[in-house]
Amino acid sequence: MTKITFRLPAEDRIVSGEPGESIMQVAVQANIPGIVGECGGDMSCATCHVYCEDQSGFKRISADEEDLLELADAVRDTSRLSCQLKLTQSTAEVTVEVPQ
């Protein structure tokens, strides 16, 4: 189980996720505002953009993800599509910031 902190403009929300789940899936199930995940994780929409400082527990960004991020607003070096951030056993906790 991974403890995920969603840093929102007004507050932090802490939710737990299971290995195999993506941060987008956890966010949608927890009704985290700002993470829509419209296409369900099929890399077609870019509505699950987050900033993630410590990405050591995740696969590196793919060329497709980098391209699709161009559709997101306010992209930074730490930008990721949270549908591509899959939780594993070894990640105890992670913090992501929800843009805007």
Binding site: S44, A63, D67, L68, E70, L71
Partner: peptide, 9 residues
């Protein structure tokens, strides 16, 4: 062709 998909918009 992800780049083209993005650019299409």
């Amino acid at each position: 062709a992800m780049k083209d998909y993005v650019d299409a918009r």
